[in-house]
Computed example of a mutant assay.
Amino acid sequence: MVMINRIARKLGNLTYGTVESIFRIYEHSNLSRAPGLADIPKYKKRQGGLGTTTYGEWCYTVGLFQGILKLALPAERPLKILDVGCGVGRLYLAARPSMNEEDHYTGLDLSKRCIDICKSTYKEDNATFVYYSTNNSYYKSKEANNLQPWPLEDNSFNMVTALSVWTHLREEDWVFYLSEVKRVLSPGGKAVISFFVLDKDYDAALPRKTDEISPYYPQQKNKWIFDKGAYGSKNWLCPAWVSVPEVAIGVREHAFLDAIEKAGLRISRFHSGSWKDQPALFFQDIVELEHKLD
């Protein structure tokens, strides 16, 4: 049965990739108001990433974050962006329309394959891609579990982005890498991060989280109930269905706010996500952070 499922998956991927390639030939000749979509990597390369692979969701995410990042741009130029967990470049395509010749983007990822794909796909002088080796029980379980600082200098970026990275971090890692955001972010800079916050909107949504398909995302509502402690934590929780906690981890609001405070950061803007079965900009919660004022 395992072999049959594997073969079926490969055939499905081959079919999807072929159909998409044909579609995109005609699609791109008609694009007129969507910068960057023509540069979305081909399906085979997107499979090298650790998250979303479908062309439609890439288009949605790139377009949405073009606007979100534009609103969060720091006043100081040149723009120096660090994209943590860059995958195969979704947020690079989102950030690129806001960048000029003096600006620079650095993508950081724990997948050597992702970094290699980015280097071969995006050849612009304003982009650098850095491999960072670390452990994650879901994505990279064989690496040594050592919390190592990013190979980046203090105060070297005025924008940090991370799309669904803290979603896959246990409590210790979550807190440590938040302090790394503070370390590399220059005063006046902004950090834009998405994950799951278990706040009052989540609590209000719990009675609605049945096995019905949500009108806000194409999954059952009760898939996104965080009721199991991640490695025994009281404040970092995961759904009961996950194979390992790092598949999806949410943090209770008071613990989230406490971690932000201890890291020396503060919230400048917060967008609650549609995973709480409500109208929203994006599926996950999006938080914009900056240095805490003294």
Score class of each variant (00 low, 15 high):
residue 146 N to W: 00
residue 141 S to C: 04
residue 156 S to C: 11
residue 137 S to R: 12
residue 132 Y to E: 02
residue 132 Y to R: 03
residue 154 D to Y: 02
residue 147 L to G: 04
residue 127 A to I: 14
residue 141 S to K: 06
residue 127 A to G: 10
residue 143 E to H: 14
residue 150 W to H: 07
residue 145 N to Y: 02
residue 153 E to R: 10
residue 152 L to G: 14
residue 128 T to L: 03
residue 155 N to F: 04
residue 150 W to K: 03
residue 139 Y to M: 09
residue 158 N to G: 05
residue 132 Y to C: 01
residue 134 T to D: 08
residue 128 T to I: 03
residue 132 Y to A: 01
residue 149 P to R: 05
residue 142 K to I: 00
residue 145 N to I: 00
residue 152 L to E: 15
residue 133 S to D: 12
residue 151 P to A: 12
residue 135 N to M: 07
residue 157 F to Y: 15
residue 129 F to K: 04
residue 140 K to S: 15
residue 128 T to N: 04
residue 158 N to F: 06
residue 137 S to C: 04
residue 153 E to G: 09
residue 148 Q to G: 03
residue 153 E to I: 02
residue 128 T to A: 11
residue 144 A to F: 06
residue 148 Q to Y: 03
residue 152 L to N: 09
residue 133 S to M: 04
residue 148 Q to V: 10
residue 125 D to K: 02
residue 135 N to S: 09
residue 139 Y to T: 03
residue 129 F to C: 05
residue 136 N to L: 01
residue 141 S to T: 05
residue 127 A to L: 11
residue 155 N to R: 10
residue 125 D to P: 09
residue 140 K to I: 12
residue 158 N to S: 09
residue 158 N to I: 04
residue 135 N to W: 15
residue 148 Q to E: 13
residue 147 L to Y: 09
residue 130 V to E: 03
residue 143 E to S: 14
residue 137 S to V: 01
residue 143 E to R: 09
residue 133 S to I: 02
residue 134 T to R: 12
residue 153 E to W: 00
residue 147 L to W: 01
residue 155 N to A: 13
residue 138 Y to E: 10
residue 135 N to G: 02
residue 141 S to W: 09
residue 126 N to Y: 12
residue 148 Q to N: 13
residue 124 E to H: 06
residue 145 N to S: 14
residue 124 E to F: 02
residue 146 N to Q: 11
residue 124 E to R: 04
residue 152 L to C: 11
residue 128 T to E: 07
residue 124 E to Q: 13
residue 125 D to G: 06
residue 150 W to V: 14
residue 133 S to P: 01
residue 136 N to E: 09
residue 144 A to D: 12
residue 140 K to E: 11
residue 136 N to Y: 01
residue 156 S to H: 06
residue 135 N to K: 11
residue 141 S to V: 07
residue 155 N to E: 15
residue 148 Q to K: 11
residue 153 E to P: 03
residue 156 S to T: 08
residue 146 N to K: 13
residue 154 D to A: 13
residue 152 L to R: 01
residue 156 S to G: 13
residue 136 N to W: 02
residue 127 A to R: 03
residue 137 S to G: 10
residue 129 F to E: 08
residue 148 Q to P: 00
residue 141 S to I: 03
residue 143 E to A: 15
residue 151 P to E: 14
residue 158 N to L: 11
residue 126 N to I: 13
residue 149 P to Q: 07
residue 156 S to N: 07
residue 154 D to T: 10
residue 137 S to M: 07
residue 130 V to N: 03
residue 132 Y to I: 00
residue 125 D to V: 10
residue 135 N to I: 00
residue 125 D to T: 14
residue 138 Y to G: 00
residue 151 P to Y: 04
